[in-house]
């Protein structure tokens, strides 16, 4: 894990989000207010500008600085939540662990912080329906040697989590105001989270 591959992941995320921007916007207009995609794109653009500045820093610092940039440029719920996730991850980086162990521990910490910030948990039609199962799977697989296998599994778990948001009622966030009217719609934050995770996984699958 180093600055270079963290930025490679970020670039891949940006690419995927850009490709799927119309779909994310439509999901948000259906049960939110349509701002999610523009906020995410603005934040990713700003974060990518940090590449040179952060090239020589430790993964811990890189996660923290990207998190701060997301915090100050995205706005809305997603800005606060993704920033909390990244800054939470930064806290758990350890030089003693291998990359997968590190990622599992960091992601767990980040997701716990995100749960706390959003006062939400599994099954509330939010990004946590993707993030929590991914975090649990990562921790189960942290000693696996075949990285491709891990990536395939995580990609699948993220997709299942994202799809699970379609059939539940929202109890958190703006979609909660819709009551039953939100059923049948995938949560846009879950979709963008799943796309981001898939983009990272694809790098190891292909």
């Amino acid at each position: 894990m180093n600055s270079e591959n963290i930025f490679l992941a970020l670039k891949n995320i940006k690419k995927t989000i850009d490709i799927n921007k119309d779909e994310i916007e439509k999901l948000d207009q259906a049960i939110g207010d349509g701002d999610h995609i523009f906020n995410i794109q603005r934040g990713l653009n700003e974060a990518l500008k940090l590449e040179t500045e952060l090239s020589s820093l430790s993964p811990e610092e890189v996660f923290k600085k990207i998190g701060m940039k997301i915090m100050t440029t995205v706005g809305g719920s997603s800005g606060a939540l993704f920033a909390t996730l990244l800054m939470g991850m930064a806290k758990k980086y350890s030089k003693e662990l291998n990359d997968l162990e590190n990622l599992a521990a960091m992601f767990y910490e980040g997701v716990e912080a995100t749960k706390k910030r959003g006062k939400a948990d599994l099954g509330e039609k939010t990004m946590l329906d993707v993030l929590i199962p991914v975090s649990l799977s990562l921790n189960k697989l942290k000693n696996e040697k075949d990285i491709k296998k891990v990536a395939e599994k995580i990609k699948m778990v993220a997709e299942e989590g994202m799809l699970s948001t379609r059939d539940i009622m929202a109890t958190k966030g703006r979609a909660s105001f819709l009551g039953e009217r939100a059923i049948g719609h995938i949560d846009p934050g879950a979709r963008s989270s799943q796309l981001a995770i898939s983009a990272i996984c694809d790098e190891y699958i292909n």
Partner: peptide, 10 residues
């Protein structure tokens, strides 16, 4: 904040 988006903590 941006249009219909919460402002940021800073």
């Amino acid at each position: 904040g941006q249009v219909f988006s919460a402002p940021t903590p800073d």
